[in-house]
């Protein structure tokens, strides 16, 4: 786990990690959230709606933004204060996602930092992007 503090923050600082999406993650997210929409749990329904398989929960993929901030950038001293997310392409079980964050703005007077982040799949397609705001615990 990284341990960046406010003094270490510089615009352009970047961190990245990858994760493989599994059936187990989908099952766990279903249990956790109770979101049993058929698009996420029934392959035939998803195919009937024009997708190639059941669609991975957008909020499951977004949970990796939490990991990005809480583990990688800034890591240990992160206090997440806001996140805006948009989804651009469907994610499927078996996809390998790469989550990347880059520091974009630092407010020294308030201690708030803004990071732009994105998730690419194994084909280098952007599946999601976000703007993440956090403070640093001192």
């Amino acid at each position: 786990m990284n341990e960046y503090k406010l003094k270490d923050m510089i615009v352009g600082l970047t961190q990245s990690f990858s994760v493989d999406i599994t059936n187990e993650m989908m099952d766990l997210f279903l249990r956790l959230s109770g979101d049993n929409n058929p698009l996420h749990i029934q392959r035939e329904f998803a195919k009937g709606m024009g997708f190639s398989d059941r669609v991975v929960y957008g909020m499951l993929t977004s949970s990796f933004y939490s990991t990005l901030a809480g583990v990688y950038l800034p890591g240990k001293y992160c206090l997440l204060t806001g996140i805006d997310v948009s989804f651009h392409k469907p994610v499927y079980v078996g996809d390998r996602l790469t989550i990347t964050g880059e520091i974009e703005f630092i407010s020294e007077s308030t201690g708030q930092v803004e990071m732009k982040a994105r998730i690419l799949n194994q084909k280098n397609e952007k599946v999601s992007k976000s703007k993440i705001k956090f403070s640093l615990l001192e």
Partner: peptide, 16 residues
């Protein structure tokens, strides 16, 4: 905090 950051960005200034 969000207000101060928005003002800093909009006017391109930094408060101490």
């Amino acid at each position: 905090i969000n207000l101060i950051v928005a003002i800093e960005k909009h006017f391109n200034i930094k408060f101490a």
